[in-house]
C-alpha cells in the first residue's frame, strides 16, 4: 500500500484539477488499489514556481510544474513557449512529450526527476481593453505575459511586460497596470477577466506547457509492477488525454465569448497573420542563442521539435 502526494497550484475549481484527479484514479485502479493518490491543489504544499524543486527534493512525490515560471532554467523547454509552433493543445502535448522525453532532452535538462507528462493549454491569445490587431499595436502597451518567453516577445514588440501573478491579472487590467494579457480563453472565466478585457485577437499564438514530474526516489522505490503502472500513465498518449478536459473547457468559453455581443473577437486578415508570424524572429533568435549557450545545437533541437509537431499534425 503506497500513497503518493501530488501537488499542483491551480484552484480545485479549475478544469485541470478534475483531469489530474481522473488520471490519479486511473493509476489507483490499474494498481488494484495498491497505489493511492493524495492530491493537494492550490499551492497548499508550496508556491507555484517552486514545484520543480519540490518534486526533485521529495517534498512531494509528484509535482505539476510550469517550467515557464522560472526563466532561464530550462532553455530547451522554453522553445515550447515560442509563438507560432503548435496550433492545438492536447495534440501538442503528445508532440512535445515525444520531442522532449523520447528525444532525450528531458534527460539532459530535467534529469534529476522522472519525467512523466506534458500538459499544454489551448493556444493562448492577446486579450486587451483596446484593439491589438497587428504587432505594431503592442508597442507602448503594458502586457501581462504568460511566461518568460512571452515576456521577451512583448518586449521585442516594443511593449512592456508587467509581472503579476495570474490571479491578479484582472486587477492589473482594471487598475491600468496592464493594458492587455496573454491567456487562453478559459482564463476569461477562471480569472474573471471577461468584464475587463473586451477585445480578443483570435489568432492562436503560443503555448504554455505544464509538466508532471515524479520524484526519482519515489519512483525507484516502487515495485516493478507499480513502476509499470506509472510508466503506462506517463506516455505521449496520456499527455494528450490529460490535456483534453482543459481544452474542451477552453473551446466552450471561446464560444461563449463569440456569442456575447459585448465582446469583440477579431479575426486577423492573411496579411496581418504574416506580420504576426514575422514578428517572432527576434524571440526565436534569442531562444537559439540561449540553447547554444546551454550547449545544444539550436537547429537540431528545432528540427526535432518541428518533426514531432508535424507527425502529430499540429505544426503551425
Amino acid at each position: 500500500q503506497t500513497t503518493l502526494r501530488l501537488s499542483h497550484w491551480l484552484p480545485a475549481t479549475h478544469p485541470m484539477h478534475d483531469s489530474i484527479v481522473a488520471w490519479g484514479k486511473s493509476i489507483e485502479e490499474a494498481s488494484g488499489g495498491e497505489l493511492t493518490m493524495e492530491i493537494y491543489p492550490a499551492q497548499q504544499l508550496g508556491a507555484a514556481p517552486d514545484h520543480y524543486d519540490m518534486a526533485r527534493d521529495g517534498i512531494v512525490d509528484i509535482g505539476y510544474v510550469n517550467p515557464g515560471y522560472t526563466a532561464g532554467r530550462f532553455p530547451i523547454y522554453e522553445l515550447t513557449g515560442v509563438p507560432f509552433q503548435a496550433n492545438d493543445g492536447p495534440k501538442a502535448g503528445k508532440a512535445i512529450h515525444e520531442f522532449y522525453k523520447n528525444g532525450g532532452y528531458a534527460e539532459k535538462e530535467m534529469g534529476d526527476v522522472y519525467f512523466c507528462l506534458v500538459n499544454p493549454h489551448n493556444p493562448g491569445r492577446f486579450h486587451a481593453n483596446a484593439p491589438i490587431k497587428v504587432p505594431a499595436d503592442v508597442k507602448g502597451k503594458s502586457v501581462r505575459p504568460a511566461h518568460a518567453t512571452m515576456a521577451r516577445y512583448i518586449n521585442s514588440l516594443g511593449g512592456t511586460s508587467v509581472q503579476v501573478p495570474a490571479p491578479e491579472a484582472r486587477d492589473a487590467i482594471s487598475k491600468g497596470t496592464a493594458d492587455a494579457v496573454t491567456f487562453p480563453y478559459e482564463a476569461m472565466k477562471s480569472f474573471k477577466m471577461a468584464d475587463v478585457v473586451k477585445f480578443h485577437n483570435d489568432l492562436p499564438l503560443y503555448l504554455s506547457s505544464q509538466v508532471m514530474l515524479i520524484n526519482q526516489n519515489s519512483y525507484d522505490g516502487l515495485s516493478d509492477t507499480l513502476k509499470t503502472v506509472i510508466d503506462d500513465h506517463c506516455t505521449p498518449e496520456w499527455s494528450e488525454k490529460i490535456s483534453e478536459g482543459w481544452s474542451t473547457y477552453d473551446n466552450e468559453v471561446r464560444q461563449e465569448i463569440l456569442n456575447d455581443s459585448s465582446h469583440e473577437v477579431y479575426e486577423p486578415t492573411a496579411e496581418e497573420v504574416t506580420l504576426w508570424r514575422e514578428s517572432v524572429g527576434p524571440v526565436m533568435d534569442a531562444w537559439k542563442a540561449d540553447a547554444e549557450k546551454a550547449g545544444f545545437d539550436p537547429d537540431t533541437v528545432l528540427a526535432d521539435y518541428e518533426k514531432a509537431l508535424e507527425a502529430n499534425g499540429v505544426k503551425y
Partner: peptide, 11 residues
C-alpha cells in the same frame, strides 16, 4: 547560471 529575471534576463 540558473534562474534569470523576466525582462532583462539578469541572473
Amino acid at each position: 547560471g540558473g534562474e534569470t529575471t523576466m525582462d532583462l534576463r539578469l541572473p
